[in-house]
Design a protein around this nucleic acid. Sequence first.
DNA 1: TTATATAACTAAAGCGTTTTAGTAATATTT
DNA 2: AAATATTACTAAAACGCTTTAGTTATATAA
Lengths: 341, 341
Amino acid sequence: MKLTIVDIAKLSNVSVSAVSIVLNNKPGVSEKTREKVLKVIEKYNYNPNQIAQSLALKETKSIGLIIKEIDNPHFAKVMKGVYDTASEFGYSVLLGSSELKAEKEAEIINTMLSKRVDGLIISPIQNDVRNFISLANLMSNNISFVILGMIDNYTVNSVDIDNRKAAYEAVIHLIKLGHKKIAYFGGPPHSGHAQKRLLGYQNAMNENLIPINEELIFTVGPNIEDSYNIAIELFSKDIEKRPTAVFCYNDLAAIGVINALEKLNIKVPEDVSVFGFDNIDFGKYLKFPLSTIDMPAYQIGENATKLLLKVIQSKGEIINEKVIIEHKVVKRNTCAIAKSN
Amino acid sequence: MKLTIVDIAKLSNVSVSAVSIVLNNKPGVSEKTREKVLKVIEKYNYNPNQIAQSLALKETKSIGLIIKEIDNPHFAKVMKGVYDTASEFGYSVLLGSSELKAEKEAEIINTMLSKRVDGLIISPIQNDVRNFISLANLMSNNISFVILGMIDNYTVNSVDIDNRKAAYEAVIHLIKLGHKKIAYFGGPPHSGHAQKRLLGYQNAMNENLIPINEELIFTVGPNIEDSYNIAIELFSKDIEKRPTAVFCYNDLAAIGVINALEKLNIKVPEDVSVFGFDNIDFGKYLKFPLSTIDMPAYQIGENATKLLLKVIQSKGEIINEKVIIEHKVVKRNTCAIAKSN
DNA sequence: TTATATAACTAAAGCGTTTTAGTAATATTT
DNA sequence: AAATATTACTAAAACGCTTTAGTTATATAA
């Protein structure tokens, strides 16, 4: 039977209030009683019920983290960043994964709110305000939250890299290598990241006066197999219809493409170049060490958490920060000079 | 301002109890008032405060998951298994990562208990009951929990693979390939998994009358770099002091070893064979597709959660299940016949 | 010494639910 | 129509804490 503060009070012959004061290390009791109470607490290994505390204090010391896919190394790093800094500041983290489903996302947000988390870190499925239905809810009920991404035209706290610029740089890299027929394997259509990366792709192409072939722009699912299949189909076409390079919205997609290429006996990078995005740890150990954009996921998680805690603690004044983390283009072995054909 | 049940009661001209009855879909109010109340709830988008519910009901509908490393693909899969099934049954999951530190583990367990999770799934740092300090606490306070691993001689609910057997099979595979000088790159000394896997290694060696050279048994940290460094040192020795095969307690360690070998211009698998453990997704995409033990992490998470929920729901009768999940040895490209030398 | 300020302590209300036990209203039997 | 069973409803206690406001004891000032 778990002891309560009432039990401790009785056992130490003081009032409940006195125990509470001792528990929270507040002034209001003599050294003598403090020690007396502490001794009893120690003896019975008393652990205050945080549920009751939360109800009284209207704070739970926990935050919710909602990512898109649990088993994606990128999000694992984000989680670690969030978890480490949350722990450091005494917060617990409640896990949520939307698996790219909008309804699931909304549902998770709802249950987290009824669990009264002190704040939320969300990697949203969609950045379009019209589709990101929970956003209005969060804003109007002024819940503390920060977005892993960008919501344009809204005063929403967020942390992200400059996705457009990163994608732009990746594609420029490919163009400088002589590629013109560059495919884009993008993520879910409404995803902010996918859109920004597509924009970067378009910018780079336009700037170099390379016409964009809509037939080379794809939407792939979140797993390696999906992009593998699409790549198989794409590269089974006539050679002149095939791209000489493909820029992928994440490393997982790039792995799928590379696998397909290998399956079809098309050489990477001699025949076709592949560029990823995220720089997951395994990228460098792959059969074809991946050229990619380094998106510092741990830092993103860390910064998001610090920002969230700032928002939580700033009862009153409005915080409006859009943190941009520096990315890097990392050139490894999956890109080469385009064959002149 | 968040509405409370009292507000809803007033707005619908009924008692608080009536609202509670409606909320929980219990009998005790007429259809008419039920609808009336429901309308108000809908209109104001009322969301009951789960903290208050938890206090009243003495259950939080959340479980704690304590793993050892967040950014290890094996645990990512475990997490996904746990998360998916917990969600399916209406439970939230509170995340904990011990990062292989016993004090951290104990601390996490403590805060989760004060947050009054309904149960705990723990991948413990140490399986030795004398060192796994929290275990006694959990058992004597009869907390619902399940262990990802094994605690011998105790009636502890757990799910795991047969680690000894799996390791045994891996080493037998190596031995059949003609290897005799087989190194073991093991995990932290007190870890149950590491111990069981070491035992399997020893069994296989003994059974084949191969003397065990203690100098070929190593303890490596949880990251790729650590085993890389140890391997560099090991394989820089005189050739006759070097093993011809190394069996690693997880895939990450195997990747480190392979990298070191590559760095030293030692050919995998021609010169030395490497065998991993876990079968992380990336294993097959690596430069040297990894031979390894398939440990079905998702299933482990799933089973652990189902077992935990069973324990939670079985107020009263004692449950004592030790679930063993089937492993598989997967042979890919990192093992070859030993050179006769 | 008395008056006053300060320190130590505590009773009770409040946080937002559920549930028990009771009352009032309605339906069913006789 | 009266007696009884059933249904609808609600007041209040309980869950385990914090905190406010008040009381009592002690220390300081006059």
